[in-house]
Design a protein around this nucleic acid. Structure first.
Lengths: 344, 344
DNA sequence: CTGAAAGCGCTTACAG
DNA sequence: CTGAAAGCGCTTACAG
């Protein structure tokens, strides 16, 4: 390995200024009441001249606080790249911005089931943790039960000390999309998602049921297609709907990507979108603008979700009662495009 | 702030094992030739029991090497979220995986023009840097001229000491897409991109020219639309092509998102895709599978690009002659879908 | 094979 | 307002 050129340290600055390290440290940390304005100015000038940058590892060692936030991204397998999921990447971007703005640093880690997350977090003595799990996984429970610092998750049903939980009003999300379709004259509306055992998807399913009930439309088991809300799942569901030919005129989904699959599957089955089948997505990804027809979708404002969670986390890190759990539910709305036709 | 529970340190382990910290350190760092098998085993057991995790800030302080790689992402403005760009997010995912696999940590930072990147990097004494710039920006030049550690960039025309430059064969990329279209019987082919002054786009433009020339098709200035290769740029270009009505039957682009814009713009102008206008994208994003028709595109294998750069960077960090620059050009290929029609 | 000493670059009490 | 001392948790020479 090559030897780096010498880096200037606190001591170098102190020597040049003819003061103690203490004084320089106080200036850097803005404790102006402890240093005369003259000295402070002089020291600041020298710092500028030398291009001095404090070593944060050293600071972390003494202060017992690192200003590092660990951001954990789940991966199903080593082959997969979770970052290709627009939900994940949008979250990361917003979190990073918010951390940076507040003087924190983001250490990013994707993990598969077996990985020891807590090891990583303790290695760097992180001040806070953000788990970027759309659904909070069982294998992370162990870690969660002995949290060493405040942490934030999303869309979880857990309530635990130190936990910040930011979620969307998922029930309302599907209530809105179902209602929207009903208001366009539809009453034979399919729901797609393998919701059982999944808290988030179940909430959305209940929103679907609620809208039907409220409008006096009978719930039909055969209109529920329990496919995985992925492109492939949607594709399969679309084909089935076309094949069943049982009166379905519209579909609500729990993911844009699934809705896009449905469009393709239904088309392959001979249906025209939206003339024969109306569709609403979920997430309002950029993607929605690029399909034909453009996809009407439920927006959960992903950026806001990330921003709120990050701010609450930083607040909690600085607060006294870190143990108080915190649950925020954000509103959702529907973004109208071209994938729903009116039957009136 | 709340007081953390005590963390076990090297000293704790040493005390419990009745040995010196030195010995424990040697065991942890796998210097087995310096410790008897017995002692090592005993120490490892105690480490397990106590759930001891080394403090990497402390290690970084003594070793002068942090195992942190700084990954820098550009942002045009504070409002923008670069991570929504699938190119960026795919890169990040692959880089993280590769770093993790090799025992490195990823510190992520998005910056706008004014941000002092070098400050951040020296703060954490990073061992290497990856600049995630599709195009290397001028304002980063200053930093680059005095690099403190090896760093990697993409698609740059720079050649400097310590620099790892991984690029795609951009010229071939557009050569391939243009040739593909020619092979389908087209000879009135538009090129879209404001390539002037942009190294990468100019390379692609030259590939377009080369294919035309090779096939004896005259280059026509009026077939070059100098729009920004974005959705909006593509949209404008698509509308123009429909309006100009000057015989163009196909379009090559330098970005999928632009190609999608062209499709939309051309449609709004009354053209059918691909019957009236064939289109080829660039990047082969997931997106290509979700449009109608599905988009034929040039694939530059983004993951491979990220992986190669990361590996070269880590190699260089461990190597002796860090100053030798390194340029790799990766191959590209074309992924056939439905957006090009044969005129034969 | 094992250990005592010194030091990495910073900050936190504590004195003056 | 300023500073000398001790320590954060680790590793690197250097002795034995």
């Amino acid at each position: 390995m090559v030897k780096d050129m010498e880096k200037t340290t606190l001591k170098d600055i102190a020597d040049k200024a003819g003061v103690s390290m203490m004084t320089v440290s106080n200036v850097i940390n803005g404790k102006n009441n402890r240093v005369s304005a003259q000295t402070a100015e002089k020291i600041n000038r020298i710092i500028q001249e030398c291009g001095y940058v404090p070593n944060l590892s050293a600071r972390s060692l003494t202060k017992k606080t690192s200003n590092i936030i660990g951001v954990i991204v789940p991966m199903e397998s080593y082959e997969e790249n979770s970052f290709e999921d627009p939900y994940i990447s949008t979250m990361i971007g917003t979190i990073e911005q918010e951390l940076c703005r507040n003087g924190y640093y983001m250490m990013l880690r994707s993990v598969v089931k077996e990985t020891d997350v807590s090891h990583f977090l303790r290695n760097w003595n992180v001040d806070g943790i953000i788990f970027l799990f759309p659904n909070f996984p069982d294998y992370a429970r162990e870690f969660i039960d002995k949290p060493s610092c405040p942490f934030a998750v999303f869309d979880s049903h857990l309530k635990m000390p130190k936990l910040i939980n930011v979620k969307s009003d998922d029930r309302k999300g599907l209530y809105l999309s179902t209602k929207y379709i009903i208001n366009h004259g539809h009453s034979h509306i399919a729901f797609i998602a393998n919701y059982e055992g999944n808290y988030l998807l179940t909430e959305r399913f209940l929103g679907y049921c609620q809208a039907l009930k409220e409008c006096g439309i009978p719930f039909r088991q055969e209109y529920v297609l329990t496919e995985i809300p992925s492109y492939e799942g949607g594709l399969a569901a679309g084909k089935k709907i076309a094949a069943m030919n049982n009166g379905i005129t519209a579909v609500v989904t729990t993911a844009d990507i699934c809705a896009i699959g449905v469009m393709e599957g239904a088309r392959l089955g001979g249906l025209r979108i939206p003339m024969d089948l109306s569709i609403v997505g979920y997430d309002d990804l950029n993607l929605c603008r690029f399909t034909t027809p453009k996809l009407t979708s439920v927006s959960q404002n992903v950026s806001q979700k990330a921003r709120v969670a990050t701010r609450l986390l930083l607040d909690k890190i600085l607060s006294d009662n870190q143990d108080e759990p915190c649950l925020i539910t954000l509103d959702v709305d529907i973004v109208e495009r071209q994938s729903v036709i009116s039957l009136f």
